[in-house]
């Protein structure tokens, strides 16, 4: 199911970024988002992903997240099934014109990427003083 604001790679040009997808299938990571008056917060499940293998880019109101899970599996370990050596993730979200791309922050912790996308001042809700 494609959620609100999600951009399908099947219908859009997914573009390129510094992190190239090297091998294996590409998965859409699970994510949740919620809005506040100040920002849009998105939490993306990226278990096993290191910061070095993560790329977040906001361009033309589209936020693209690319990541790879690379396990450092010892040579002596014999897999008991046919597991992919690495797992690639890709997610594209339409963040719209209300987000300030310069203020986007990202934190990766416990396999969850937390993105905070602050809203532009002009779109934040205001209380109108009644004279």
């Amino acid at each position: 199911m494609i959620e609100k604001n999600e951009v399908s790679c099947e219908t859009e040009n997914c573009g390129t970024s510094a992190l190239s997808v090297r091998s294996g299938p590409v998965y859409k990571p699970r994510y949740h988002s919620h809005y506040s008056e100040e920002a849009w917060e998105v939490k993306v499940s990226l278990p096993g992903v290191q910061k070095e293998q993560l790329d977040v880019m906001v361009e033309n109101e589209i936020m693209e997240i690319k990541a790879a899970r690379l396990f450092d599996t010892p040579e002596a370990w014999r897999p008991l099934a046919d597991y992919p050596p690495e797992k690639n993730y890709r997610l594209r979200l339409d963040v719209g014109p209300e987000v300030d791309p310069e203020g986007v922050t990202a934190e990766l912790k416990d396999g969850i990427l937390v993105l905070r996308l602050p809203l532009r001042e002009e779109v934040k809700p205001r209380t109108i003083e009644v004279k």
Binding site: P47, G48, A76, R78, L80, G111
Partner: peptide, 29 residues
């Protein structure tokens, strides 16, 4: 539904002395 979790399959490995399993548990402390 925020708590819905996908099936978390394990990846299993072995060497001469051990079995090893890896399970994805994102967000778990």
């Amino acid at each position: 539904s925020a708590y819905e979790r996908p099936h978390q399959p394990a990846e299993w490995y072995e060497d001469d002395d051990h079995y090893y399993a890896r399970v994805e548990l994102p967000g778990v402390k």
